[in-house]
Nucleic acid binder design. Sequence first.
DNA 1: TAGATTGTTAATCGATTAACAATC
DNA 2: TAGATTGTTAATCGATTAACAATC
Lengths: 212, 212
Amino acid sequence: MTNTIPDIVIARLPIYMRELCRLADEGEKTTTSSQELGKRLGISSAQIRKDLSRFGEFGKQGTGYHINYLINQLRQILHLTEEWPVVLIGAGYLGHALAHYHGFQHRGFRVVRVFDNDPVHIGKIMNGVKVQDVKELYKSVLADQIKIAILTVPTEAAQEITDILVEAGVTSILTYAPIQLKAPSFVNISYSDPVIQLQQMAYYLRPQSEQS
Amino acid sequence: MTNTIPDIVIARLPIYMRELCRLADEGEKTTTSSQELGKRLGISSAQIRKDLSRFGEFGKQGTGYHINYLINQLRQILHLTEEWPVVLIGAGYLGHALAHYHGFQHRGFRVVRVFDNDPVHIGKIMNGVKVQDVKELYKSVLADQIKIAILTVPTEAAQEITDILVEAGVTSILTYAPIQLKAPSFVNISYSDPVIQLQQMAYYLRPQSEQS
DNA sequence: TAGATTGTTAATCGATTAACAATC
DNA sequence: TAGATTGTTAATCGATTAACAATC
C-alpha cells in the first residue's frame, strides 16, 4: 500500500499540472524549476519540491524538471490517463453551461449523460447528449459504471439525488447546491458555492457604510 | 485595529452561517450548540467554539447559541448587512447562469452590471440587466464604485480584464477562468475551476484500467 | 440543583520553510 | 569546472483538539 498523502498535497497537484500545461503551451522552454513554477503560482519552491518528491524523483539537479515529463507523471498520479465519463444532474442554466464547457475535453473528463426531472428539459440535446428523465438515473449510472457526478439541481433535491448516485456506485461528486451533503466516508464530495466564496471575500472589504 | 484572523477561519464563517440559516429555516428550535452544528458540518465542536470566540462571546453555557442572533453577528462580521453590487464579465453560458442565479439575492449580493465583448451578446437583457460592451467596463465600474467582480471570460481574456477591474477599484474577484491571475496583494482572488476539483477527486478513484 | 455547554488553555498534531549536501 | 537546482532533513510555524473551570 502506498504511504498516505495529505489531501492538501493532492489538492495542489492539479494546480501544478495546469500551470505546467500553460508553460508547455507557451512553448518557450522544455524545462522549468520549482522556483519558476512557484513564482508563477505564488507557492514556495520548497513546497513544490516537497510535494513532488512524495511521488518520486522527477527532477534533475542543476536543470530542474522536464515540463512534458512532469505533466505525464502528474497525469498518472492523478489517474487522468484515460477520460472519465461524468454524469450531470440538473439541466438548468448552470447544467447547460457545464454540459457545454469545453474545458473538460482535454483535461480528463467528459459529460456523457445529463438528467433532469422537468419535462421542459427532458429530451433536449445538450452538446450532443440527450437529457434523460431522472427516473432513469440509477439504472443508467449503474449500467455505465459512472463514478463521477456533477450536481446542479435545486437545494431541496440535492440530498435525494446524492443518495441515488451513491447507491448506483458514484464515489466522486462535485456539487453546486448550497447545502452540506451526507454520504458514506468513501464518497468524495467537492463543493462549489459562488456565494460562499463571495462572502469570504466580503470580510476583507470595507463596509459600504464606511466608504468615502 | 482588530487582531488578525487567519484566512482559514474566515473561510469557515460563511459555512457556519449557511448551516445556521438552514437550521433557522427548519424552524424546529431557536437555539443550537457547537456540537450540533459541528455534527451537521463534519467539523469538531471545539473548532467552532474557538472560531466564534475570536469575534466575541456569542453563546451561553448550558444552552448554546441563539440561532438568529448568531446569524446576525456573522452577517456583521462578514460585512453582509448591506447588499453588495457585483459586476459580471462574460455573458456566455456560465455568465448567463450566474446572472440568473437566485442564490445571490438573499445572501448579500446582486449582479448589477454585465459586460461582454461579443456583439451577439451586447444589448441582451439578462435577469433585468442589459449586457454592455466591455469597452465601457472601466468607466462604469469606477463610476458605480463596484468592488466585487465575477469573471466568466475565456482564459485568454482573463488577465486583461483583471487589470482593468483592479484599475477601476475592484478588490474582490471570483474567477471561473482556469488560469492563475496576477494582481496586487490587496486584491482578493477566489478561484473556481470545476476541472481542478474533478482532478483532485480523480486521485482517489480506482484507475479505469484496473476496474473489474 | 444537576445537566449541559460555553470560552479558553495547554498539548498535540500537521504543514511549511530554511538550509544544505548531493549532483547534474 | 562553476553555477544551478534538486531531494531531504530539521526547525519553525500554525492549526486542531482535548480537557476543564466557569456558569447558564
